[in-house]
Computed example of a mutant assay.
Amino acid sequence: MPTIFIAGDSTAARKGGGEWPMAGWGEFLAQHVAPGVHVENRAINGRSTRSFLAEGRLADIEQDFHSGDLLLIQFGHNDQKIEDPLRYTDPQTEYRHNLRSFIDSARNLGGYPVLLTSVSRRRFTPEGEPDPEAVGLYPQAAREVAGATGTPLLDIFAASQQLFRRLGAGDSAQLFMHLPPGSRPNYPDGVTDDTHFSQFGAQQIAALVAEALKQTGTWQELFPGNTI
């Protein structure tokens, strides 16, 4: 059975105990896979495609990656940070080039790259709709790279926005880190964070990822039963 590797940022990454109840969706993907399928979550807080590559983290994945394995690739949030030259990438140029580097890496090793659009931030328009620009131009860039390279695409930006729409502007807050002051000793002042997930939110996004993988028709056997 293959290993599913995750290359990404804090929306997918495993969190330390001091960050609880914050979670990344990659922590819960293993709940959906068939026996014998291993999930190797290599997503890291705060990374963009640029910094992930520059730190040699893709090279580290390559050391453990085998023919037939999957590489899930999800970035965009930190690539947006134009104020940080170590992380920022232009969505029309460098971001696309970097995504192709991940794709080529998996294919060169006999595996299967899978592009994910950035999971959406919780941001609503004045009309009460999820903001289509919540992660800027990066989701569309990923769609276009997937099309140009023939890479399977999981449109998690669209799927997460559908989830937010279904829950509404109020109830969707439960997916994210919204804590009042004094409710957790590690967040004494409380927190209102519409990018990083609560345990519940990470579980919901993991289910969306598993269902999207199943719906490709290629890896149905890896995800038995209902995912959502």
Rank of each mutant, 00 (worst) to 15 (best):
Y95H: 12
A106R: 02
Q63Y: 13
D131V: 08
E211D: 14
R122F: 04
S105K: 04
T149H: 12
G24H: 07
G76P: 00
A141P: 01
L154A: 09
H196N: 09
A141N: 01
A7H: 05
T227H: 08
L109A: 13
D79A: 00
W219N: 04
T149L: 10
E133S: 07
R87V: 00
A54G: 07
T125W: 10
R100V: 05
P152A: 06
G26P: 01
R184N: 08
A141K: 01
L116H: 04
Y187G: 08
D171P: 04
Q199W: 15
D104N: 15
G128R: 03
R122D: 10
G217C: 03
A106G: 04
W219Y: 11
P132E: 07
I82P: 00
D60S: 14
M1W: 12
A59Q: 13
T192R: 15
D79E: 04
G36N: 08
E94Y: 06
L70P: 01
A106Y: 02
T227Y: 12
L208W: 14
I228A: 13
T125C: 03
E133K: 04
G136K: 06
D194H: 09
Q162A: 15
G217K: 03
Q74R: 06
D189I: 05
N108A: 15
V33W: 05
G76A: 01
V191L: 15
E94F: 04
D131R: 06
D171Q: 15
W25L: 09
T49S: 03
Y138H: 02
Q31A: 14
G128M: 14
G182I: 14
Y95D: 05
T93Q: 12
S183N: 04
L70H: 06
A207W: 04
E19W: 07
F164H: 10
W20Y: 14
H196T: 02
G76E: 00
I156T: 12
P139K: 02
R14T: 12
V135Y: 01
E94P: 05
R100E: 08
P113S: 09
G111I: 15
T218V: 15
F223G: 02
A148M: 08
Y138V: 08
E83K: 03
D155V: 14
V191T: 10
I73Y: 02
G170C: 06
A141V: 09
Q80G: 00
I156A: 03
A134Q: 06
N78S: 03
H196W: 05
T216I: 12
K15P: 01
T89G: 00
Q80E: 05
F28N: 03
G110W: 11
A159D: 15
E94R: 11
L222W: 13
G46P: 02
I103T: 05
V39W: 06
E55M: 09
S48F: 00
S51K: 02
T192C: 14
S198T: 13
G76S: 04
R107V: 04
T195G: 01
F75K: 03
D79Y: 00
F75W: 05
T151K: 13
D189R: 13
P152G: 13
A12S: 11
A141W: 05
A141D: 06
